[in-house]
Simulated assay, not measured.
Amino acid sequence: MRLKVSKFLVVLLMVGALMLGGCSTQQVSSNSSPTSTATQTSTTTTTTEATSVSATTSESNPVMKDLPRLEGKATVVMTVKGSPITIEVDGTNAPITAGNFVDLVQKGVYDGLVFHRVVREPQPFVVQGGDPQSKDPKFPANRLGTGGYIEPKTGNQRYIPLEIKPKGEASPIYGKTFQEAGVTKPPQLQHKQGAIAMARSQQPDSASSQFYFALADLEFLDGNYAVFGYVTQGFDVVNKIQQGDRIDSAKVTQGAENLKTPG
């Protein structure tokens, strides 16, 4: 019995660390820790809520029209410390989430950003980055993990909805976890080792630019976080990333024509 309880607590704390590393706009000093603790879970709060874009279908949600979409697949090569990581981005099953990522890659947003959270203990979990604030080397490390992409034209942060497609279904569920939506099927894109997914705060629709690589199969995250692709080459590079390492560059090498941007 003690073994089951211990495993449950480890999972709970790991998930807590991931959620708290999302795109909240208030700084909490514990966000920079590469490991999770009970204190982090109990003391971290979010003072501003993401703009709600909750909906069960993209057709019923006008906010979707203002977001990039990836209609098909694309390949992104992310270089870290001179070594390439090849990512297949899946817009067929996660068009908004994949479109957001490819659009930010095209804009050069990820170039020079830091991986601010790396969790390998007590077991392999995630490598997380994508906070635009980390491009500034003088930005305090203990404040990383709180930023998102700011639209230059509006000065507002871009948020995307939680987008997860149930296996065998034609369309994703938007703005709700599978538990909230009453979905019992597994997602089409699952948290297998090498998956890339969006980080978020407690609000389902609070993802912006932060992403994470799954260092192991993380089935307990399925239906709660949006996977949008997989590492197809270079997972050994992902496995060597340390907290504080920077992304040299991220480039779309195939499928750029599948990106559809509003306007």
Rank of each mutant, 00 (worst) to 15 (best):
M78F: 04
K73S: 11
D217N: 09
G129A: 05
E88P: 00
S134A: 04
G145K: 06
L67R: 06
P124D: 05
L3T: 12
T48C: 12
T57E: 07
L218D: 04
Q27S: 11
Y149H: 12
L259W: 10
L144W: 02
T41L: 15
M198N: 11
E121R: 12
T75N: 05
S201C: 13
L215E: 10
V105Y: 07
K153G: 02
P122I: 04
L104I: 07
T146A: 15
E49I: 13
A98H: 08
Q190T: 07
N100D: 08
V80Y: 02
A50F: 09
I160V: 12
H116G: 09
I85R: 03
S33K: 11
T47L: 15
A98Q: 08
Q242H: 14
G194N: 04
E169T: 13
A197H: 08
V118N: 09
P152C: 04
G82H: 10
Q242T: 13
K73F: 09
E71R: 12
G145F: 06
S60Y: 03
Q242W: 00
N156A: 14
P124M: 07
A197W: 13
G99C: 08
V77Q: 00
K135V: 05
G148A: 06
T177Q: 13
Q210T: 08
F8Q: 05
Q188V: 01
A250F: 03
I173V: 15
R143L: 05
S209C: 08
I173Y: 00
D111V: 00
Q40I: 07
G234N: 10
S201P: 09
K165H: 05
R246V: 03
T154K: 04
A141V: 10
V76H: 02
V119M: 14
T92D: 15
Q242D: 13
P95L: 14
Q203L: 07
S134T: 11
T261L: 11
Q157G: 10
A195E: 08
M19I: 15
V53S: 15
T35A: 14
D236V: 04
C23V: 06
I164R: 04
V231R: 08
P140H: 03
G99I: 07
A216M: 04
K251I: 01
S30K: 07
T79Q: 01
A170D: 14
E49D: 15
T232F: 00
A141R: 11
I241G: 01
S206G: 10
V53F: 12
E219W: 07
I85L: 06
A50Q: 09
Q242I: 01
P95T: 10
Q40C: 11
V53E: 15
G244Y: 03
Y159S: 08
K81A: 05
